[in-house]
Design a protein around this nucleic acid. Structure first.
Lengths: 149, 149
DNA sequence: TAGCTAAGTCTTGAAATGGAACTGAGTCAA
DNA sequence: TTGACTCAGTTCCATTTCAAGACTTAGCTA
């Protein structure tokens, strides 16, 4: 299977990966969530090849994860901002950050600390069931095909 | 920056991506969560180049995400099983599935339906704050460096 | 006029991928 | 006891993607 056939798979994970599943894209989004918006800043922070960055940003714009917004004329300069669809990736990003925190943090603790402004506490994300609110254990989940879909 | 330098970044996302962030690895894990365990089955289901599959499985075993377990002698045959560390990736996988369900499902609904055995309902995962239990909005989160870490 | 900035594009060699054929250890059926 | 089959890889080659850095364009600044 080719990578660009992923999009047409009958699988939401495959479809998601067709957008964010290649090398670099998730790190570009990390920067975006940390309020980075400009080409030069993405490039400096990540040390990514400029050609690859150009291509990744264009793809994310095409998929409406980022939007390109002119912040000045003469010369025209653009910045890249997360859309709502982009913000919707936050749970996925945080789940990966959590996993890294749990399994790869060194003795001093995780590199970043997240504070929930709503309640004022440092926190990590917890994945719960939309119906009963309990923490979800993978062994407690049954999967079936949606016959219609 | 090279991909193999990711692991030494002071960032949990980068560290996580050094394990699961390349083409194919997350799809291999999708299969693992769907109870696939054997080389041939991964290969058939994914249509991945065998060389790449060999390399990905070895990497996941090296990182203790999967473990290789002999299921028969004469000839020795192995299968790959998720470890607890591998199961811990479930929230990340499900967050990506949710995003795909939300933004790429066709009219008939998402491809797979998940049932929570504990409560008996079809569900999707919700990302909540470990401290107050509320749903987390990215705009309500402040990030700071862990000075020690 | 020279130098600077932002946001790219171009070039080139190195690395990763896809596809298909091949290998090796053992089983099975005739 | 020969031939076909299975599983889990390994090998080879052409194609694709990536890393790194030089170059380009449009306008600004001193």
């Amino acid at each position: 299977m080719r990578w660009n056939e992923l999009r047409s798979e009958k699988c939401s994970l495959a479809r998601t990966l067709s957008v964010i599943g290649d090398r670099w894209t998730l790190l570009v989004l990390r920067e975006a969530f940390l309020r980075v918006r400009r080409f030069e800043d993405f490039q400096k922070n990540l040390g990514i090849a400029r050609r690859v960055l150009t291509e990744r940003l264009a793809h994310l714009v095409e998929e409406s994860v980022l939007e390109k917004h002119a912040y000045q004329e003469r010369p025209v300069r653009h910045e890249y901002r997360l859309t709502q669809k982009g913000l919707d990736l936050y749970p996925a990003l945080m789940a990966m950050v959590n996993w890294g925190d749990r399994h790869y943090a060194d003795a001093d603790g995780p590199p970043l600390v997240h504070t929930h402004k709503s309640c004022g506490h440092d926190f990590h994300t917890v994945t719960t069931c939309s119906e009963c609110g309990e923490v979800v254990d993978p062994r407690a989940v049954r999967v079936r095909h949606n016959i219609a879909g």
